[in-house]
Write a protein that binds this DNA or RNA. Structure first.
Length: 319
DNA sequence: AAGACGAAAGTGGTTGA
DNA sequence: TCAACAACTTTCGTCTT
């Protein structure tokens, strides 16, 4: 599931932790998985100072201490060399580069070369600018979607790849970055719905799906269809439902897929219906509207799925 | 008044000639 | 490229609690 690149990146990140933090690190070792859903996808959000599960969204700890980067920068030069996602630094480097280039051109070289050089720097300037913007957008959206760091890194790398293949020109950065996050969430088994991505994006759903299909085609990415099970923990958490209901819903989904009731159906609708049924069976009733609001599928679809499931799996749903 | 139900028409994406 | 198609949505009237 995890791409080789991100393992390398992670290794770098965890590799040389400062010694003084050993105690803190030990404390963190104990919290390796989510007590709610058992997922190991825990994310630290230093902005909000909390530790939460990327899978179900459960906040595990608040007011955690920011360990900071594992390196220390003693001056800006070092900082720019050591930072891995250094948008502001790149600005600074670029500034430097520009002025150097201009002073190099002596009067004797003529106007043509100077003009060429300016054109070149202009292009470098704008592509770099948009790249910086793309990275900051990836980070902003990933933050809003509460995605783990490995997905953010994978997203930056995918963007870089798209840039190398010249797929960005003439397309909106927002569309591409949104689509990239959508892809990566799926590849890492923590799928977000298209609506969820759209809500944190600055472009509409239509543009995101267009960019999504475009990327799949051009980079021939393989994205396995999302499983309904992947959505269950997060939806249950958002509906404030217990772990008992979560496992019941998963059980229903498994039976449904064995009975081939999931073929051709949208995974989110299946998840929604399974959760709806599980909640009723466990006496923690949620209305179709409540489930609909969280999952983004309509009540009609929940009804249709839940009818199919309850009838064909012989589940008696007594209200 | 709120929730559940289902019919009917509309939408957007996929598929196959 | 176009039309058929399945899944899903929108809308709305009706029934139940």
């Amino acid at each position: 599931m995890v791409s080789p690149e991100s393992i390398e990146e992670k290794g770098k990140y965890n590799g040389n932790r400062r010694r003084g933090d050993k105690a803190k690190a030990d404390a963190e070792e104990k919290l390796k998985e989510c007590p709610e859903c058992g997922s190991k996808n825990l994310v630290r959000d230093y902005g909000k100072a909390e530790l939460f599960c990327a899978n179900c969204g459960l906040v595990i700890a608040e007011n955690i201490v920011d360990l900071g980067p594992e390196w220390r920068a003693f001056d800006s030069e070092q900082a720019s060399k050591r930072a891995r996602v250094g948008a502001p630094m790149t600005y600074r480097i670029h500034d430097k580069g520009l002025s150097t280039l201009v002073t190099w051109s002596s009067p004797g070289q003529g106007q043509y070369k100077l003009k060429k050089r300016q054109q070149w720097t202009h292009i470098a300037n704008t592509t770099e600018r948009s790249f910086i913007f793309a990275l900051s957008e990836i980070d902003r959206m990933a933050s809003a979607l509460r995605l783990p760091i490995n997905i953010r890194e994978a997203a930056s790398m995918l963007y870089r790849k798209a840039m190398k293949k010249h797929l960005i020109r003439g397309r909106s950065i927002e569309g591409i970055t949104s689509a990239i996050l959508y892809v990566n969430c799926r590849q890492y088994g923590v799928p977000r719905t298209l609506e969820e991505v759209r809500d944190v994006s600055r472009v509409g759903q239509k543009e995101i799906s267009r960019a999504y299909r475009f990327l799949l085609r051009e980079l021939d990415l393989k994205v396995t269809p999302a499983s309904p099970v992947d959505f269950v923990p997060r939806f249950c958490s958002q509906l404030d439902l217990s772990g008992e209901i979560r496992s019941k819903a998963v059980e229903i989904i498994k039976k449904a897929s064995e009975a081939e009731l999931t073929n051709g159906r949208g995974p989110i609708g299946i998840a929604a219906a399974a959760i709806y049924i599980a909640a009723i069976l466990s006496g923690e009733h949620r209305t179709q509207k409540e489930v609909s609001d969280v999952t983004g599928v309509t009540e009609v679809t929940i009804r249709n799925r839940y009818k199919e499931l309850s009838e064909q799996l012989d589940i008696d749903v007594l209200l």
